[in-house]
Every structure is written in structure tokens, then in C-alpha cells.
């Protein structure tokens, strides 16, 4: 159970980073931390005590396996996360080129 609580704490750490920090790069890091906490949660959901990796080999057909489906989902989620983070970083670089700063307080063309 303690692991799940830590997982939620990690999620909140990420959320804190996104909401409080003023630096674009730190916001991106916050988003990445949130994503990793959710991935960790998915892996924990599939975990079985004393389970082996889910590969069927000769003589081990009926062994206790961990659930492979969350692992597949996490792999997909990681790929999606790579794409999102790369795009965010690209946009952040462009913003830096236009404004000359990473501080979101100074980046406010849009109002209302």
C-alpha cells in the first residue's frame, strides 16, 4: 500500500512543479514527473508477488507471471510521453528565441 501512496505523492510533486514553477523547462520537467508517476502506478497494478517475467519458456508454462498488459500499456504511454515532451521542448526553444527568457511571467502576449 505504501508504494501506491508514494506514487500519488510523486504525482502531486509533478503537479506542484507545473502549477507553481515559473520556468518553462521546470514546468516541462513537472509534466514528465507526473507522467512517470502514472506509469509507475500502471506497473504496480500489474505486479504480482513472486511473479516472473511473462515469457513462456519450456517447463515454466504454468508459473506465476506478472501481468504483461500494463507493461505493454506503459511502453505505449512512454512513447507518447516522448513525443509530447519533445514537442514541448521544441516550442520552449522557439519561445526562448522570440522572447529571450524562460520566465512565464514575462511571456504574456495573450490576455483575457
Amino acid at each position: 500500500m505504501i508504494v501506491f501512496i508514494l506514487c500519488v505523492l510523486l504525482f502531486l510533486v509533478g503537479l506542484y512543479g507545473v502549477l507553481i514553477k515559473r520556468n518553462l523547462i521546470k514546468i516541462i520537467i513537472g509534466l514528465a514527473i507526473m507522467e512517470y508517476s502514472v506509469n509507475l502506478f500502471l506497473i504496480l497494478v500489474g505486479y504480482r508477488d513472486k511473479g516472473t517475467s511473462p515469457i513462456v519458456t519450456k517447463g515454466l508454462e504454468n508459473a506465476l507471471f506478472v501481468d504483461p498488459l500494463p507493461q505493454a500499456m506503459v511502453l505505449t504511454a512512454i512513447v507518447i510521453g516522448v513525443a509530447t515532451t519533445a514537442l514541448l521542448l521544441g516550442i520552449a526553444v522557439m519561445i526562448y528565441k522570440k522572447y529571450g527568457t524562460f520566465n512565464i511571467r514575462k511571456i504574456n502576449e495573450l490576455k483575457g
Partner: peptide, 11 residues
């Protein structure tokens, strides 16, 4: 991934 890396380097 290589394209991503190159895009950042070129920038």
C-alpha cells in the same frame, strides 16, 4: 529520435 536530436542541434 535521431531527427529530434538533429532538430535541436540545428536550432
Amino acid at each position: 529520435l535521431f531527427t529530434l536530436f538533429l532538430a535541436f542541434v540545428i536550432k
